[in-house]
Design a protein around this nucleic acid. Structure first.
Length: 105
DNA sequence: TCTTTGACGCTGA
DNA sequence: ATCAGCGCCAAAG
C-alpha cells in the first residue's frame, strides 16, 4: 500500500458535510510532515468525481486549492451544497468552520 | 544529477 | 496577534 493510495482511499471515505486538513490526512497515512504531498496528490485527482478533493482544506479551513477547480468558486459551492458552513474574516476571506465540520476519520 | 516549485504545518521570537 | 524559518518529498525542467 502506497502512501499515495492511502491518501486517495482516505479522501474517498470523507463523508459529505465533513472536511479534513492536509496534515490530518498525512498523519493518518503515516507521514505527519508530508502534508504538501497530499496537496500534490490532490492535484492529480482534481476533476475526478470519485475523489472528493473539495473536502480537503488546510488546517485553518482556508480553501487553498480552490484555484485548481473549474472556477474559483466551484469548491465553495460544492461545500455549501453539502451543508458545510463558512466563517467570514473579511469580504473575500472565507474559511470552513473546522470546529463543526472536521472529520476525524 | 541538481534545482525549483508547491492545494502544508509547527515552533519560536 | 504576527512573522520568519524549517522540515518534508514528489515531479518537472
Amino acid at each position: 500500500m502506497d502512501f499515495r493510495e492511502k491518501v486517495i482511499e482516505l479522501v474517498k471515505r470523507i463523508p459529505a458535510g465533513k472536511v479534513m486538513s492536509y496534515g490530518q490526512i498525512a498523519a493518518h497515512c503515516g507521514q505527519r510532515s508530508s502534508a504538501r504531498m497530499v496537496g500534490y496528490i490532490m492535484n492529480d485527482c482534481a476533476g475526478r468525481e470519485d475523489v472528493p478533493c473539495h473536502r480537503v482544506v488546510n488546517r485553518n479551513g482556508y480553501l487553498t486549492g480552490k484555484a485548481h477547480f473549474g472556477s474559483p468558486d466551484a469548491m465553495e459551492k460544492m461545500l455549501l451544497a453539502e451543508g458545510i458552513e463558512f466563517l467570514e474574516s473579511g469580504d473575500n476571506d472565507i474559511r470552513v468552520d473546522m470546529e463543526k465540520h472536521r472529520w476525524e476519520g
